[in-house]
Simulated scan of single mutants.
Amino acid sequence: MLKITPYLGSLVVIVSLGGLWYPILGYFMFLVMGTLFITSLFRGRWFCGNLCPRGSYFDYGIIKISKKRKIPKILSSMWVRVPAFTLMMALMMYRISVTFAAQNTFELIGTILVSMCLVTTIIGTMLGGYFNTRSWCNACPMGTMQRFIGGNKHQLQMDHESCVDCKLCEKVCPMELKVRDIGNNPDCIKCGRCVEKCPKDSLSF
């Protein structure tokens, strides 16, 4: 992960709460969406593990209250993720389109973006608190979009000959992936924790 990663979580609080008084903060969401779209073309879900403010919020904030229960597999099911992505995008576009008939369109769009950030953050906080911290990331609509765009990019590599099967990599994976079989797992967020934890330097990107 990047050196700035631990500090990005504060942006979620600023946008979600500060945006209630200053709706213009909601436009930060467009910057996030644009950045994750561009990075996903080359590195898949790398944004999730390195630049995502909500991911940082989970890793360095919610982790303090998380019960760290196993993430339900249904959250990573496409039967949940695709409808969630479709519903979120459709709802956002509909709400934004309605505002064009109003005089204060700019402020209303900001309010819509803030409300989306706040609602998804509350859901993510509840999931991360009751289950493991990155539970929301398994079903995240934006993460799902990155998976479809560049899920086969920048994949984790493993030297199976040097691997001693200690499973330390799997214990630190925030997405609870089977790292040793990760070959082409499109939901790897490229946070690098498994690489840092491996005692034999068997993992690399």
Results as ranks from 00 to 15, higher is better:
Ser162Gln: 08
Phe37Pro: 01
Ser56Glu: 10
Cys52Gln: 08
Tyr22Val: 11
Thr99His: 12
Met158Phe: 08
Gly129Phe: 03
Val179Phe: 02
Leu127Ser: 07
Lys70Ser: 15
Lys178Val: 04
Tyr22Cys: 06
Trp136Asn: 04
Leu177Tyr: 02
Gly61Lys: 14
Cys117Leu: 13
Ala84Asp: 12
Ser202Trp: 07
Met89Lys: 11
Met175His: 00
Gly9Glu: 00
Ser115Leu: 13
Leu91Tyr: 14
Leu17Ile: 10
Leu41Val: 06
Arg69Met: 15
Val195Gly: 05
Ser56Leu: 07
Phe30Trp: 12
Ser204Met: 10
Ser204Phe: 09
Pro141Tyr: 03
Ile123Gly: 06
Val179Gln: 01
Ile182Ala: 01
Val164Thr: 10
Asp181Gln: 05
Val114Ile: 13
Gly34Lys: 03
Ser66Cys: 10
Leu108Glu: 10
Asn132Cys: 08
Ile4Ala: 02
Gln155Cys: 03
Asp181Glu: 12
Gly151Leu: 02
Glu161Phe: 09
Thr105Lys: 15
Gln157Ser: 05
Cys194Thr: 04
Val179Lys: 02
Leu51Ala: 09
Ile71Ser: 13
Arg95His: 07
Val82Asn: 11
Phe205Asn: 14
Cys52Leu: 07
Leu36Ser: 09
Val179Gly: 03
Val172Met: 03
Thr121Asp: 10
Tyr60His: 12
Gly19Phe: 02
Met89Thr: 14
Thr125Pro: 00
Tyr57Cys: 12
Arg43Asn: 09
Lys153Val: 04
Arg134Gln: 06
Asp159Gly: 05
Ser135His: 06
Ile189Ala: 02
Tyr60Asp: 08
Ser40Ala: 15
Val119Cys: 13
Trp46Asp: 08
Asp201Asn: 15
Tyr22Asn: 02
Leu2Pro: 00
Val179Ser: 00
Leu20Ile: 12
Cys194Tyr: 00
Leu75His: 15
Ala139Tyr: 04
Met175Ser: 01
Arg134Cys: 01
Gly128Glu: 06
Ser10Gly: 03
Val80Phe: 15
Thr35Met: 11
Asn184Ala: 01
Ile63Asn: 15
Gly129Ser: 05
Phe205Val: 15
Leu168Ala: 04
Met93Gly: 15
Leu36Tyr: 06
Tyr130Gly: 05
Arg69Ser: 13
Leu2Ala: 02
Asn132Ile: 00
Phe100Gln: 12
Phe131Asp: 03
Trp46His: 11
Lys64Glu: 11
Lys67Tyr: 11
Met158Gly: 04
Val114Lys: 07
Ala139Lys: 01
Asp165Cys: 03
Asn138Trp: 11
Ser16Trp: 02
Pro141Leu: 03
Glu176Cys: 02
Cys166Arg: 07
Val32Phe: 09
Ser56Lys: 06
Leu11Ile: 14
Val12Ala: 02
Met116Arg: 08
